[in-house]
Every structure is written in C-alpha cells, then in structure tokens.
Design a protein around this nucleic acid. Sequence first.
DNA 1: GCCGATTTGTCCGTATGTATC
DNA 2: CGATACATACGGACAAATCGG
Lengths: 243, 243
Amino acid sequence: MPESKFDKIYADLKNKIETKVFSFNSFLPSENELTKIYSSSRTTIRRALSELIIRGYIQTNQGSRIRVIYEPIERNIFKIGGIESFKEAAIRNGFSYDTKVVHLEKIVADEKIATRTSFKIGDELYDVLRIRYINNKALILDKNYFLVSVAKNLTEEIAKKSIYDYLENELKIKIMTSKRKMTTELANLEDKTYLELENYNCLAIVSGRVFNSDGIQFEYTESRHRPDYFCFEDTAIRHKFNG
Amino acid sequence: MPESKFDKIYADLKNKIETKVFSFNSFLPSENELTKIYSSSRTTIRRALSELIIRGYIQTNQGSRIRVIYEPIERNIFKIGGIESFKEAAIRNGFSYDTKVVHLEKIVADEKIATRTSFKIGDELYDVLRIRYINNKALILDKNYFLVSVAKNLTEEIAKKSIYDYLENELKIKIMTSKRKMTTELANLEDKTYLELENYNCLAIVSGRVFNSDGIQFEYTESRHRPDYFCFEDTAIRHKFNG
DNA sequence: GCCGATTTGTCCGTATGTATC
DNA sequence: CGATACATACGGACAAATCGG
C-alpha cells in the first residue's frame, strides 16, 4: 500500500508500465509534464523515477527522454530479487506449498557456527530447520539462526506459519537491511537426507544476514534450493539512484 | 573518479568507513553536521547517504542516527555484485588470469537463440565464446552475443583484450542498464569440453541483457562459472533509496 | 509515561549545468 | 544554433520517529 506521495506516483507509473499503458521502448512523459499530471514538485517525481530505474523499469539519459525497458517475460520459477518470501513466490507462480519444521532448538554458537553466521562464539541462538515443499516436492531447505535475545519465545507453531510476521507484528522488530550472498555448493548429507535432489549434486544457496534498527544482526539464514527451482534477479545501473 | 559533489562526499564517507574512521555499529555525524563538514546542502548529503545505504554501508531509521553496518570480511572468490568485470575481480583477489577466444563469428539468430537471448529471429549477431583462466585453471566460460548493427567490426583481437573498452571508448556506446539473472544449471557438453569441472555436475550461471542509451538490447551475455569460484552479493533494504 | 530536543523522512520551489535532438 | 530534457545543487518548511530527562 503506497503511503507517501512519491510512492503513490511510483506505484501508479509501475502499474501503467506493467499494463502496457507505457509499453516497452516507448517514452514516459517528461519530468515537467509529470509534475503537472501528478501535481507535485520535480523532486518528488524524480524520487519516484529513481525507484523505477533501480528496479529495471525505465532508464534515463541526460538530454533524452525517459525510456521504458520493462518487458513482462520472466517465466521463472523462483525469483529472489527484492525481498520475496517463499510463500509469496509460491503464490505468484500458482504452486501449492507447504512447510515442515524439522527442528527448532536453542543452541550456543561454537566457533564453526560463529564463522559461518557472523554471530559471536557463545551467543544463544534459535536453530531452525525447515523443509519447503512446492507441489509436494521437497525442494528447499531453510536453515535459520535467530538471536534468542531478540527473537524471544520462538515456537514451532510460529515457525510453521511465518517467523517474520511474528517478529514484525508481535515483537515490533524493524527489519532494516539484509546482506545476501548467492553461491552454489555441493550437496551435503543433510541436503541429501531432506531434499529430493534427483541427479543434481549441487545446490543454489542464498545466505543472508539480517539487521534490525539497532544495527544488530539478529538473524542468519540459509536457503538451499534445488537448482532447477531457483532464479536470482538483479538490475545493474550505471551509477545513480536518485535522478 | 568522483565528479559531482555528492559523489565526492559518497566516496569520502565510504573510504572513512572502510578504513574504520567510522567503525562497525558506530554512528556517522548527523545530516546537519555533515552539511557543515562538507559545506553542502542537506539534499546533497542525503544523496550521498542513499548510495551508502544501497551498498550496505549504513542504515538509517527516522529519529535515530545513521548507523554503520559495514564489515570488511568478504573472503570471497568471485564477487558479482555491482558491475565487476572478470579482470577486475581477478585483480582484486590477486589471481593471475588469462582469456582464450574459442571463436568469434557472425551468425543469424534462429528461434532457439532468440528465445534464450531475447533477440529477434533473423537478427545478425556476433557470437563470441571465451574461456577465462584463473591461476591457470579454466573456470569460467563466457558466451556473448552482440548485435552486429551496434557492435560494429568486432575482432578476435578486441575480444582477447576487452570488448567493453572498445564499445565504450571507440564506438562511444553508452551502456546504461543490465538486467541479470543468476541460476544454477547442469553442465552441458560445451561446459565439460572447455572447463575443468572436477566433480561438479552443475554450474553457476549469470546471464544478462545489456541496454544502450537508445533502449536497444545490444548484448546478451552468459557467464558459466565453476561453483566454487563464484559468489553473488546483494543488499536488500526496506524500501527507499533517496533518503 | 509525558514532553521537548534531536534526527531522519517527505515535499516544495528555484537556479544552473549539460547532453540530446 | 536554439529548444528541450535530464542532472546537480541549494534552502526552507513541516511531519514523524527516537531518545533522554
């Protein structure tokens, strides 16, 4: 739901592009025209445009007009650009989905875990392991570690539904930044045990460190995907973000 | 090389964070203080800050101060966040590197190629295949397709050095936007022929569509990496970019 | 728990520079 | 060359969240 003015303008333009009111390789109205259309300042218009640029909807070039470079395509399976959750991605693709909690237990970080997760040795953590089923196939293994001091009173019940709903709405934690890495690794014993890997011996892995508004990394997460149900999207732009 | 004012401020703050003048989990001076330090308007300061936010150096939260969340780590091998070229990544990691051009030939896009590359059937393309050696091991297979009408007169000589230097500096093409996808796929015959895959049967693949300032997709590129020499980095933030 | 000071978030209007057409 | 369009920068105003007393 758009709240601020620039966000409404962004959402409106995004929608018009997606529904081909502004089609691929056509131009948007100029910034000056947009200020009239939306009754706003040029600053606000440019703020909205910069979001469209970052997300690969348009590109701008000094002197020329604002060009639409969005195409619908993307027949993808599992897109992980932005912050789409497992559930959202499954819904978007029209798949059935289910989650099974293998375990949820309190542990204390040893050196090995500390190195991998960027927590400190001795930190008390919730260790959560979940299997994600898509169309009844075990395709994703989710490993999560949460700081017990932040994610208080986590239960299997919550893990089965949505941990993030709980953190944001119940505990009022503000999730600010997530630093993620995408790698490909050989399948380990755990992967082979819980997932249906068929003839793949590798996995696509997205690991992430999540920070709250206190600058505390309170979560480390590792999503291990069977390769054919995985896609990471990204738009790289020249060098600017606001204008 | 920083040019604009906000870019200089960005570069200076980034440097001070990387050299721990502002260390992890400490605060930057407030926006008002920064306007005095850099003798600039708050708008310009915020423009610089927004770049730091996107790149995961800092995070902001209304009411509280600007927190540094950058840590050096990154013992990575091959990072592909931003737009780091093969050569830059190799240099950054202190590796030796070499490129071998397997072939460079003109082709006409058939249906299969058109589907994969988003070019149109009948488009005349340069088809370039290169092997990237790191520390004398064949680890990356680069497949590129360029529109002949844009990337005029491409030669093996140029492909051996840097195609992008040629496009940007000789042909004066403005490279604007690159839409990329990261996937993991089973190795095909070509991969097995040219790369030293050892026991991996999968590859990490970055494919990208590159647009020039005319909104024309003039390149499709596919980098096929042996998994252990690959890492894709990303920072996801709440919802804002300029402020 | 309230209040006031501080800090970031949003928005406006304007001016000037510079690339494109 | 002039007109148009985007890029950069300034300064001011108010809103909303945070934090300390």
